Amino acid sequence: DKPLMPYMRYSRKVWDQVKASNPDLKLWEIGKIIGGMWRDLTDEEKQEYLNEYEAEKIEYNESMKAY
Rank of each mutant, 00 (worst) to 15 (best):
Asp1Gln: 10
Asp1Tyr: 05
Asp1Pro: 00
Asp1Asn: 13
Lys2Ala: 03
Lys2Met: 06
Lys2Leu: 04
Lys2Ser: 05
Pro3Cys: 04
Pro3His: 15
Leu4His: 10
Leu4Arg: 05
Leu4Thr: 06
Met5Trp: 04
Met5Arg: 09
Met5Tyr: 12
Pro6Trp: 01
Pro6Glu: 05
Pro6Leu: 00
Pro6Gln: 03
Tyr7Met: 13
Tyr7Ser: 13
Tyr7Gln: 10
Tyr7Trp: 04
Met8His: 11
Met8Phe: 13
Met8Thr: 12
Met8Val: 09
Arg9His: 10
Arg9Trp: 11
Arg9Gly: 02
Arg9Leu: 03
Tyr10His: 00
Tyr10Phe: 14
Tyr10Ser: 00
Tyr10Leu: 00
Tyr10Val: 01
Tyr10Pro: 00
Ser11Glu: 15
Ser11Gly: 05
Ser11Arg: 14
Arg12Thr: 07
Arg12Trp: 03
Arg12Val: 05
Arg12Pro: 01
Lys13Val: 04
Lys13Gly: 01
Lys13Gln: 10
Val14Arg: 03
Val14Asp: 06
Val14Pro: 00
Val14Ala: 01
Val14Ser: 00
Val14Thr: 01
Val14Lys: 01
Trp15Asp: 02
Trp15Met: 09
Trp15Gln: 06
Asp16Pro: 07
Asp16Trp: 06
Asp16Glu: 13
Asp16Met: 06
Asp16Ser: 10
Gln17Asp: 14
Gln17Ser: 13
Gln17Gly: 08
Val18Ala: 02
Val18Lys: 00
Lys19Asn: 02
Lys19Met: 07
Lys19Leu: 07
Ala20Arg: 13
Ala20Ser: 10
Ser21Ile: 04
Ser21His: 08
Asn22Pro: 00
Pro23Phe: 01
Pro23Ala: 02
Pro23Gln: 02
Asp24Phe: 15
Asp24Val: 15
Asp24His: 10
Asp24Tyr: 09
Leu25Ser: 10
Leu25Arg: 06
Leu25Lys: 13
Leu25Asn: 02
Lys26Tyr: 00
Lys26Val: 01
Lys26Cys: 07
Lys26Thr: 13
Lys26Arg: 07
Trp28His: 02
Trp28Gly: 14
Glu29Asp: 05
Glu29Val: 00
Glu29Trp: 00
Ile30His: 02
Ile30Gly: 01
Ile30Asp: 00
Gly31Pro: 12
Gly31Cys: 12
Gly31Gln: 15
Gly31Glu: 15
Lys32Ser: 09
Lys32Asp: 09
Lys32Arg: 11
Ile33Phe: 03
Ile33Asn: 01
Ile33Lys: 10
Ile34Gln: 02
Ile34Val: 15
Ile34Glu: 01
Gly35Trp: 14
Gly35Glu: 15
Met37Asn: 02
Met37Pro: 00
Met37Ser: 01
Met37Val: 00
Met37Thr: 02
Met37Leu: 03
Trp38Thr: 03
Trp38Asn: 03
Trp38Gln: 03
Trp38His: 04
Trp38Cys: 01
Arg39Pro: 03
Arg39Cys: 07
Arg39Lys: 11
Arg39Asn: 10
Asp40Gln: 12
Asp40Pro: 00
Asp40Phe: 00
Asp40Thr: 10
Asp40Glu: 11
Asp40Cys: 08
Leu41Arg: 03
Leu41Pro: 00
Leu41Trp: 00
Leu41Val: 02
Thr42Leu: 04
Thr42Asn: 11
Thr42Pro: 14
Thr42Val: 07
Asp43Gly: 07
Asp43Gln: 10
Asp43Cys: 10
Asp43Thr: 09
Asp43Asn: 15
Glu44Ala: 09
Glu44Tyr: 09
Glu44Gly: 10
Glu44Lys: 12
Glu45Lys: 06
Glu45Asn: 06
Glu45Cys: 05
Glu45Phe: 00
Glu45Gln: 08
Glu45Trp: 00
Lys46Met: 03
Lys46Asn: 02
Gln47Asp: 10
Gln47Phe: 06
Gln47Lys: 07
Glu48Asn: 10
Glu48Gly: 09
Glu48Val: 11
Tyr49Met: 05
Tyr49Arg: 04
Tyr49Pro: 03
Tyr49Lys: 03
Tyr49Ile: 03
Leu50Pro: 02
Leu50Met: 14
Leu50Ser: 12
Leu50Arg: 13
Asn51Glu: 11
Asn51Pro: 05
Asn51Cys: 11
Asn51Trp: 08
Asn51Arg: 11
Tyr53Arg: 07
Tyr53Trp: 08
Tyr53Met: 07
Tyr53Ile: 07
Tyr53Leu: 05
Glu54Ser: 05
Glu54Leu: 06
Glu54Phe: 02
Ala55Trp: 06
Ala55Phe: 07
Ala55Pro: 10
Glu56Pro: 06
Glu56Ser: 05
Glu56Asn: 05
Glu56Asp: 09
Lys57Arg: 12
Lys57Met: 15
Lys57Cys: 14
Lys57Asn: 11
Ile58Pro: 08
Ile58Tyr: 04
Ile58Trp: 06
Ile58Val: 06
Ile58Ala: 13
Ile58Met: 12
Glu59Lys: 13
Glu59Ile: 06
Glu59Tyr: 07
Tyr60Ala: 14
Tyr60Asn: 14
Tyr60Ile: 10
Tyr60Lys: 12
Tyr60Arg: 14
Tyr60Phe: 09
Tyr60Gln: 10
Asn61Gly: 12
Asn61Pro: 06
Glu62Ile: 05
Glu62Met: 07
Glu62Cys: 07
Glu62Gly: 07
Glu62Leu: 11
Ser63Lys: 13
Ser63Gln: 14
Met64Phe: 07
Met64Ala: 15
Met64Gly: 12
Met64Cys: 13
Met64Thr: 12
Met64Tyr: 09
Met64Gln: 12
Met64Ser: 13
Lys65Arg: 11
Lys65Glu: 13
Lys65Asn: 09
Lys65Ser: 13
Lys65Pro: 12
Lys65Val: 07
Ala66His: 11
Tyr67Met: 12
Tyr67Ser: 15
Tyr67Asp: 14
